[in-house]
């Protein structure tokens, strides 16, 4: 476990987290600390339940054992009302953007404000336009979500996630399926937002290069356990074979290239009947 630089309590503290879906165990005793004001990346191969972890932190799923404290509050012990109050201070960027498809970009960003605040229309307009400006999409405010490219949709969703000025934003696979330009834009944005407003960021991703470029701290999880954690450079040259294979994207290593099967020769010869 890496000690966070400042001694203050971590924003998110996960202890002994267990979670299973049906008979499949997804997390089996995971401990994670997410420090305040930093960009923390949670990495791992596809199917390790990284998105599930975000949903657990957001209180959308219940763990079978273990605790998750967000800003000192045990999120699964909160009443519904307190949970919703806490969620107002958490932003989440979904993989698909999750924009509401029947209202415009402007209305999407304005949505949390309309739900949770009593701002005057002119205040609301200014705030929304400022947030859209921050993601560079002020000119796209009258478009419908279906008219946006994937990268633009994600940037609108980012503007929406931070419109209530949350203490943290969770990014679910922000880089997947993006062309290099929008990927670069997103990397810049995430880092800039984190530094400008001291928002803590949690990135869940398997895009090693981009994530390593902006993360302060990386956790690598696989098979329901935290394999290793540390700063990006340290992780790149990790002593663990597994981590090195993952971080450097080697084809073969502890994770074999081949799906388990009998010997090729035996298989070929045996099939001739």
């Amino acid at each position: 476990m890496v000690e966070s630089a400042d001694k203050q309590e971590p924003l998110v503290r996960i202890r002994g987290l267990r979670f299973s879906r049906g008979s499949r165990v997804i997390f089996d005793g995971v401990d994670i600390d997410i420090p305040r004001g930093k960009v923390t990346a949670i990495m791992g191969p596809s199917g390790t339940g990284k998105t599930t972890l975000l949903k657990l932190i957001g209180g959308q799923l219940r763990p079978s054992a273990g605790t998750i404290h967000v800003d000192g509050q045990d999120i699964h012990r909160l009443s519904n009302r307190d949970l919703y109050r806490l969620r107002m201070r958490m932003g989440m960027l979904f993989q698909s953007g999750a924009l509401l498809t029947d209202i415009s970009v402007f209305e999407n960003v304005a949505y949390p404000l309309r739900e949770h605040t009593d701002l005057t229309p002119s205040m609301l307009r200014k705030l929304v336009l400022l947030k859209l400006e921050a993601v560079g999409l002020r000119g796209a405010r009258d478009l419908m979500p279906s008219e946006l490219s994937g990268g633009m949709a994600r940037r609108v969703a980012l503007a929406r996630a931070m419109v209530l000025d949350p203490m943290m934003i969770m990014y679910d696979e922000p880089f997947t399926g993006q062309d290099p330009i929008s990927m670069g834009v997103l990397v810049e944005l995430i880092r800039a937002l984190n530094d400008a407003s001291r928002i803590s960021s949690i990135i869940v991703s398997h895009d090693v290069q981009e994530t390593a470029a902006i993360a302060d701290l990386i956790y690598v999880i696989s098979n329901g356990k935290v394999i290793e954690s540390g700063a990006p450079d340290a992780m790149m040259n990790s002593s663990s074979d597994w981590t090195r294979q993952f971080m450097q994207g080697l084809a073969d290593g502890p994770v074999p290239f081949h799906y388990p099967a009998e010997e090729l020769a035996a298989d070929l010869l045996g099939s001739s009947c």
Binding site: K55, G58, Q60, Y84, R85, R87, M88, M90, G91, M92, F94, A98, L99, L100, T101, Y111, P112, E115, H116, A157, R160
Partner: peptide, 9 residues
């Protein structure tokens, strides 16, 4: 979108 709403409280 439903999850998104939930996370927007």
């Amino acid at each position: 979108q439903l999850s998104g709403l939930e996370m927007m409280a």
